[in-house]
Nucleic acid binder design. Structure first.
Lengths: 148, 148
DNA sequence: CAACGATACTTACCTTTAGTAAGTACGTAC
DNA sequence: GTACGTACTTACTAAAGGTAAGTATCGTTG
């Protein structure tokens, strides 16, 4: 791979403007442009377990094992990994008590609560509209089958 | 693997209630329970390119190549694949004109527009809050470095 | 009093998914 | 007539995700 720069290169999106600094060009994120750091944030937030973690932590503090039990099907590896990425973005707060056996509590920062509100929007919408979605899926499958 | 059933098994979530039918138990989706079909819908909608496709198509009709150009960095393979999954869920409508070279238009169904509104929520939030997020990331990294 | 399970992780391994590059069939522009 | 655009699909490879087991220490149970 061509050595571009350790940060995501500046050459991108809508024509080559000038070499304004990276942070300046993307002060407001632009999700449609490749290499904009907002893409990574979107990836973290909308990751398979990211959404569920944010919703689960919305308004409460939970231990690692509480989250594991609440979010059915998540592996410890992915739970730890996703919590770490959300913590790096400043959405999740981690408080570890120096006791044994370990006791770690997770909660949301102010920024995290805001993000959680947004993702709760899709989460609730999907849960509510699930009957219609199932019906729509059925209709599409039916139509496909009809078109031989 | 134990042969359970071709559909996602019924044994799950909050204690074994009874063997009420699959569709009945999950009429309203439950994203926290493994095996609930709403998980798949969430996966499609919040997939890396799913979010961007929904936002891009919100309110307009675009051709395959329009989407490819708009959503920078998406490969043709993933664009096609994600459009197909969104079409299967009934969110995206595909209209193909029988001409050569091919001409295919994509737009959103009513259900798709609703979904797009929700994902646009996070998308806009991320773009707006990107400066604060970057700052938060910096602070976390700093604190981590300080803790040796 | 010695296994057993719970705590919050990490690591090695394997499978699934995503990304890259090229091919397809045909038409238009240069 | 060579190159490019259209909307894909297919093979290959790289990265991500899932599974299972290990870690150190304590409380419960038999």
């Amino acid at each position: 791979m061509a050595a571009v720069s350790d940060k995501k290169s500046v050459s991108d999106s809508s024509t080559v403007e000038d070499n304004a600094s990276f942070t300046e060009r993307f002060r407001r994120g632009d999700l449609f442009s490749d290499k904009c750091p907002s893409r990574d944030v979107l990836k973290h937030i909308t990751s398979r377990w990211g959404v569920l973690i944010l919703v689960a932590l919305q308004g409460n503090t939970l231990r690692f094992s509480d989250l594991r039990r609440k979010i059915k099907g998540v592996s410890e590896k992915m739970l730890a990994q996703t919590l770490q990425s959300l913590e790096s973005d400043g959405f999740v707060l981690r408080h570890s008590y120096p006791v044994v056996p370990p006791h770690v509590e997770y909660s949301l920062s102010t920024l995290g609560e805001e993000a959680a509100e947004q993702v709760a929007g899709i989460a609730n919408w999907i849960e509510e509209k699930m009957p219609q979605i199932s019906e729509a899926q059925r209709l599409v499958a039916e139509k496909r089958a009809a078109e031989e």
